[in-house]
Write a protein that binds this DNA or RNA. Structure first.
Lengths: 145, 145
DNA sequence: AAAAACCCTGTAGCCGCTACAAGGTCAAAC
DNA sequence: GTTTGACCTTGTAGCGGCTACAGGGTTTTT
């Protein structure tokens, strides 16, 4: 299987495959006489593994670590679980931050009534007031923390 | 006010101030005889505005657009509100994606019971099964969509 | 007068790709 | 047999939003 076929089967760009090889996530395959990469089913399996981890938003460094761990079957599973849970905590933290953002942006947008000019608009005023460190719809109680 | 003082007052890195100037978010200030940037209170106000928008996770391009809009006070406020609401939708979409991720990672972690080896661990098996396109704890109903 | 703290420009690194340039190879159509 | 087109190769640069470092000059403090 050549790189285009591998990429198609995994649903990724050809460049991404080469990138993963450079980054040590995919073993360098054999080459044909003319220098083309020749992949086997193991490579596809590994590539799908990487993509699945990426779909869980894991950074490449952690996927690399998972691959290392999986190579040594004597390793305690706790290490894998810790990695997953640490990642989960990161995702949770980011989600909560976005949730707070949502509230702030909604408050901001609520300042605006249709049809008037920016000179009379609550949004820019809010944003500019923030420049003075004053309370605003975005960060109502920020200064109380 | 020199760049260090400005940066300190806004709570940003000196490099970030220069970066914003390069990116057209901050007007180039006057220079002293020896070439040092000399800022006034207007610059601090603008910098705080930019930082506030960044705290709302707006991309610099949108902040630039907001600055443009705010310069022309005859512009309809709807443009500002649309920008904010579009950004809000992006944030919402990302938050929902992260929420789904959380569930997947939790299901994954639940596969693991403490103390055993990776060979017997549900997590890596799940991740590797995914490489065959099978149903997994991470993506239980993905193939039904 | 020396040391420390500040400033300048330019460049490169982070992440996970993506795209482009400038070439070599291979299969099929004419 | 050659020409088209799809494929492959390497190397390099770009995205965003900074951050850091190198190698200098200036100002302030000791």
């Amino acid at each position: 299987m050549r790189i285009g076929e591998l990429a198609r089967q995994a649903g990724v760009d050809v460049q991404t495959v080469r990138y993963y090889e450079r980054e040590g996530l995919l073993d360098a395959p054999a080459r044909t006489a003319s220098g083309y990469r020749a992949y086997g089913p193991r490579h596809l399996e590994r590539l799908n593994f990487v993509r699945h981890c990426r779909s869980l938003d894991m950074p490449l460094a952690e996927i690399r670590r998972l691959i290392e761990l999986s190579r040594d079957t004597r390793v305690s599973c706790d290490q894998v679980n810790t990695l997953v849970r640490t990642h989960l905590e990161r995702v949770q933290a980011k989600r909560k931050a976005l949730q707070a953002l949502e509230g702030q942006l909604e408050a901001l947008s609520a300042q605006c009534e249709s049809g008037h000019r920016v000179a009379d608009c609550g949004i820019l005023e809010e944003l500019i007031h923030a420049a003075h460190g004053e309370a605003c719809a975005c960060h109502p109680a920020a200064s109380e923390a």
